[in-house]
Every structure is written in structure tokens, then in C-alpha cells.
Design a protein around this nucleic acid. Structure first.
Lengths: 155, 155
DNA sequence: CCGGATCGTGGGTAGCGCCAACGAATCTTG
DNA sequence: CAAGATTCGTTGGCGCTACCCACGATCCGG
């Protein structure tokens, strides 16, 4: 083992985009690990959270809210419905649509996932002070909102 | 089109880990788009950049430096060698190893990729002031270094 | 000299993100 | 009101990232 422990990241001109990717890695790993403990994935969490925040919606709407592709929504809703976390009911006003509704079990499951992800959170943000955490959230929110406006809608 | 333009992100309790993932999305998309213009992917860029920063190394070392799996390094080095950007030569001191060296063409290619990624950078960071950009980089670096020490080495 | 570790390699898996196409239903518009 | 465009759910597929396991060859420590 020639350069065992440190390997010294050195980290010269590391571009922000790369940094974001690198930071997203442990973030996702930690969140995934927590979610996996409840037999769920990030897609499930995103969908349940969107339902809890915005209320019942069609699958296409859910896709727009979460940025997840229509195709993938199908599989996710299938899995969530199988476990009784959501209900898929035909929209009487538009027979093309399914209205997805969170069940009480789904709400409970989401609460559990929230807890698990929150734990991952603490681990992720361990090296940051409280002030730094809010500042990081603020900056990231700026980025996300900016590119959400350009990515999800326009273009 | 019922809720066309805004869809109003609303963005309640969005957890940092999710925010990071969301922010990494446009970051990676923009970078990928630039890299694709030069027929490359993020893995290629990471490997070339690591070679330029740390100098020649074995494939296993490159894996440790970049956090990329040994198995994946094989495919990437194959592709980079095919295009003449790196050279794979056996290590005389340890016949298990290949020493990967950046060629002049590889250095030129990396410079081109740097330019392309830098463009993506500007687009990514558009909503941030200069001060905010450095602060974001600082915070992300804290996160990455912290979890690199725990992820790449220990455990 | 022998056992354990490391190296390159091949193979496989899972998840995310995306795109093309289809029939059914709806909306638009002439 | 009929014809064309659009939206919806769904199926099937693809590429990239990130992993894992197993193997033979090689090196190293005891």
C-alpha cells in the first residue's frame, strides 16, 4: 500500500460543477442508505413528498413537479400503489388521467422516510456550522430555482 | 395546458441532500453537454484532470484519486488510449501495474475540455454573485473533503 | 517458500435520467 | 361538427454512473 491513508486530495482548480457532483455523491449515498432501510428509493421519496406538499395530482403533473419523466412515474406509482401508499383513481373529469392520492399509510411511510433522510442529513452536514448550513441551502436554492425555471418549463 | 408556466416550485422543507442532488442535475447536464461536444464524458474528464494534477499513476491509484472504481478505470483508459490521449506502459518495478501517462494530445484535449466545462460553469453559476460563488465552493469543498476522508479511505 | 494482499481485467447489477412510440381521450379550429 | 393537434398513461429501450464479485498474475511479509 504505497500511498495509503491520505492520498492528499490536493484539489487544485476544482470546478464548481465537479464539486457539486462530488458533493452530491455522499449526499445521495447517505440518503439512499437511509431510504433503503425502508425499502424505498429516491424516486419514491420524491413522489411521496410531492404528493404531501402539493396534494393529489395526475401522473403527468407529478412528473412536472418532481422533474421525473412520465415514463418513470408509471413504475414508481405502480410500486407505491402495490404497497398501499398511494391510490390511483380515474379522473371523472378527464378519463385520460389517473388521480394519485396519498393514503394514510403513505403519509406514515413518508414520515418514516423523512426521519431516515434527516439522519443522513446530519451526517452529510456534519462539517458545517449552523450558519454555513443555511447559507449552503440558500445558495443551492438559488441555483436550483434558476435552472428549474429554465429546465422544467422553458426550453 | 392547465398549469403551464410557473407550476410554482413552492419548495417547502427541501432537505439539503435533495437540494444537492437537484443542483447537481443541471450542473452535470451542462457539463455533460459541453464534454459531449468533444466526444467525452465526465469519467474521461475526471481521469485526464487527475493525471494532469497528480502526474502519471497506476490504474488503481487513479481509481483512488478520482473515486472511480478499478473496473471502470479499465474501460475509460481503454477509450482514452484508443484516442491517443494517454499511454499505458507496464511498470518495470511492478509488473502487475500499468503506468498511465498523459500524452501531449491528451493535454491538449484536456485543455479543450477545461474550456468547455468552464463555459458550462458560467451558465451554472449565473444566478450567483462572485462572492456567493466562492462561498459556495468553500462550503462544497468542506463537504467533499470531509466525506472523501471517510468514504475513499477509511471504512 | 507460502499465504495474503494488490493489480488489471471481465462480467454483472441497480438506479437515474431520458427519448420514441402507441392507443385512448380531449381540446382546438376550421 | 368533423379533422387535426395535443395530452395522458403506458411500454420498451438506451446511456451513464456507481457498485460488486471473481479470476489469474504478481508482489510482499513472515
Amino acid at each position: 500500500m504505497e500511498n495509503a491513508e491520505g492520498v492528499a486530495p490536493a484539489r487544485l482548480r476544482v470546478l464548481p460543477s465537479r464539486l457539486l457532483g462530488l458533493a452530491a455523491l455522499p449526499a445521495n449515498r447517505l440518503a439512499d442508505r437511509g431510504l433503503a432501510a425502508a425499502g424505498s428509493r429516491r424516486y419514491h421519496y420524491a413522489l411521496l413528498a410531492a404528493l404531501a406538499e402539493y396534494g393529489p395530482a395526475s401522473q403527468a403533473d407529478l412528473g412536472r413537479r418532481t422533474g421525473i419523466d412520465r415514463s418513470d412515474i408509471v413504475a414508481i406509482t405502480n410500486e407505491l400503489a402495490e404497497r398501499g401508499f398511494i391510490v390511483r383513481s380515474p379522473d371523472p373529469d378527464d378519463r385520460r388521467r389517473n388521480i394519485i392520492t396519498l393514503t394514510p399509510a403513505g403519509t406514515r411511510h413518508l414520515a418514516r422516510l423523512d426521519g431516515l433522510v434527516a439522519e443522513a442529513q446530519d451526517e452529510l452536514l456534519a462539517p458545517l456550522s449552523a450558519g454555513e448550513r443555511t447559507e449552503l441551502v440558500r445558495l443551492l436554492t438559488l441555483l436550483v430555482d434558476h435552472h428549474a425555471a429554465a429546465g422544467t418549463v422553458h426550453a
